[in-house]
């Protein structure tokens, strides 16, 4: 087992390098460079000063040297200082935002699993039933609804018309005056809409996936055997079929990490939630290049870790993987 994990970790190294190369290239496609951004706006700049600043940032060196220097900083988690007015180290800004984003995504992943798996199993077991057709329509809707529009609709319905739920932020204005229990309720109320919105798209995909896995497994010989033995349908479905259909879901979980993290830009912006997605959006609007680069790299590394976690859980759940992989 530990050998397998070690192997996976070693395989991550070239991918990590690739991530940094692509991120670096993204930075390099920009017309001009960070220095010109600062110097262009400063009337006191002369040729000599610009040269000095460029040398200070290493921009007078060949590209591969710049990359290596940048890579070294990345590895030490030194993303430089934000261009925003607070001028703080990028890593601090990101670290204070990450927990919110990860918490939201984990909750919505759990929600997706809890709802989508039963739906998928049900519609596979009762293929072509009314329930199955109903969920198929729901799935197509789920794939097609733009999340930010769904967010707007829910805000209109529950926030503006019914006034049941707050439509932005994580806390009410009077948060400081609330008791502990009321605080929990307050945050929970703020989280309902964002979590629902972020889970909605994944819900469709996951239930579809679970359904097709289940349909595939039900046709396998061992399921027929189980039925032929005279086991009752419940045992066949839940003991023999369900467990095997569940396995590939682990992989899909890993694969859905980038989508969730990317999607957090949208719903954190719409609902004004101070997470990494919102920080990214603000940085893009302000052209805060160091922060953009930092979040881009960290987002990719988080995805990589998500995939690794999925691979490891898969190998824990399915011994066949360990032997052949």
């Amino acid at each position: 087992m530990s050998k397998y994990i070690l192997k996976r970790l070693i395989l991550m190294i070239p991918v990590l390098l690739g991530i940094t190369i692509i991120s670096f290239s993204v930075m390099k496609v920009a017309p001009g460079d960070p220095v010109s951004l600062v110097t262009d706006l400063n009337p006191n700049m002369n040729e000599e000063a610009i040269k000095r600043i460029r040398a200070h940032y290493g921009l007078d060196q060949p590209v591969y040297m710049q990359y290596l220097k940048w890579l070294r900083n990345m590895l030490m988690l030194d993303f430089g200082r934000s261009f925003a007015s607070d001028n703080r180290p990028v890593i601090d800004k990101i670290l204070e935002r990450i927990p919110i984003t990860i918490m939201l995504n984990v909750i919505s992943l759990l929600l997706i699993l809890m709802v989508a798996i039963p739906i998928g199993v049900m519609s596979a077991v009762k293929q072509n039933s009314l329930f199955d057709r109903g969920t198929t329509v729901f799935v197509f809707l789920g794939f097609a609804v733009p999340t930010f529009w769904l967010a707007l609709l829910l805000m209109i319905l529950f926030g503006v018309k019914l006034e049941w739920l707050p439509i932005s932020g994580l806390r009410s204005l009077n948060y400081a005056n609330l008791g502990t229990f009321e605080r929990v309720i307050d945050i929970a109320k703020h989280l309902i809409l964002p979590i629902f919105v972020s889970a909605f798209g994944g819900l469709a995909g996951m239930s579809r996936y679970m359904r097709s896995n289940m349909l595939e497994v039900i046709r396998q010989d061992y399921v027929t055997t189980a039925r032929a033995k005279g086991l009752d349908e419940r045992t066949v479905i839940f003991k023999h079929a369900f467990r095997n259909a569940l396995l590939p879901v682990v992989t899909l979980l890993g694969l859905s990490v980038p989508g969730l993290i990317g999607g957090s830009v949208i719903f954190e912006t719409v609902f004004a939630i101070p997470g990494m997605g919102q920080l990214f959006y603000q940085s893009v609007m302000m052209r805060d290049y160091p922060t953009i680069m930092g979040i881009l790299v960290i987002g990719a590394v988080l995805t990589l870790l998500g995939n690794l976690l999925a691979d490891i859980s898969y190998s824990v759940a399915d011994p066949r993987i360990r032997v052949s992989g």
């Binding site: 989508g259 893009v284 987002g299 995805t303």
Partner: peptide, 14 residues
């Protein structure tokens, strides 16, 4: 590995 929306936003920002 890149959350594609991040990558798109980053490039557009540049």
């Amino acid at each position: 590995c890149f959350p594609s929306f991040f990558l798109i936003l980053a490039v557009i920002a540049f």
